[in-house]
Design a protein around this nucleic acid. Structure first.
Length: 226
DNA sequence: GCATTAACCACAG
DNA sequence: CTGTGGTTAATGC
């Protein structure tokens, strides 16, 4: 299983590429790879954690317990680090992560990770870049979900799956309607309505979970203007 | 006021 | 789990 040795891993992160050979050996000794099926929880809000999580393959949702109900914060695709904000300065996970497609995850010992950050500036810089990108994305998401109407938010999320996750116009939605409603700050019923309206207007095609984007320019327009 | 929007409820596949 | 229809509260013109 050469794939499970960090030095020859083809999913190695941009940050880990900056590690010295001896640090790679160190990483290898202090990380563990596990596989998760769709629906399996990777780590849970409120539970103890002493690991940084790197998703080498798959798709996950980040969710957090709100005052009223569980809220999906975002969908993240590999390759990505997951548990940096939740672990680096906290003993307890501040949010949960659940696989929504078959997913391979590396659990990296927190102290090992911290040592890399403090001793290897290039590694730390790559980590910073990822964190900054994520923060900007979350700012944009915050603004969009407040200012866009339902049609715009649903269009945006479909475009997200198309452009950022699958890279093709036809894909199988990894979420239920209720989850998509939760993600886009709307209701299950509204998602139903909007999707069937898009379908009727031949903007997309729906066959159960399978979505095909038919009119890309129009759905872009809807995403922008609502 | 009247129209629009979107959530909530209920019920049927 | 999903789609639809009726109802309702909030907001805009």
């Amino acid at each position: 299983m050469t794939e499970n040795i960090c030095s020859s891993c083809r999913f190695i992160s941009d940050a880990a590429k900056k590690l010295d050979p001896d640090q790679i050996v160190e990483l290898d000794k202090n990380c563990l790879q596990l596989s998760f099926k769709k629906g399996e929880i990777i780590f849970r809000q409120g539970s103890f954690s002493s690991n940084i999580i790197f998703v080498k393959k798959g798709l996950i949702k980040i969710h957090i317990t709100g005052p009223k109900e569980e809220q999906i914060i975002k969908i993240s695709k590999s390759p990505t680090y997951l548990g940096i904000p939740t672990t680096i300065n906290e003993k307890i996970n501040q949010y949960s992560a659940t696989a929504i497609e078959p997913t391979d995850v590396c659990f990296i010992d927190l102290n090992t990770f911290k040592e890399f950050v403090s001793k290897n500036g290039k590694f730390a810089y790559e980590i910073m870049i990822e964190l900054c990108k994520n923060e900007i994305k979350s700012f944009k998401k915050c603004v969009n979900r407040t200012q866009k109407n339902i049609n715009g938010r649903v269009a945006e999320s479909l475009l997200f799956f198309y452009n950022d996750i699958y890279g093709q116009k036809s894909f199988s939605l990894p979420l239920t309607r209720a989850e998509l409603g939760n993600l886009t700050d709307s209701s299950r019923e509204s998602i139903s309505r909007v999707l069937s309206e898009f379908h009727k207007n031949e903007i997309i095609k729906i066959e159960n979970k399978k979505i095909t984007i038919l009119n890309e320019s129009l759905i872009n327009k809807i995403s922008e203007k609502g």
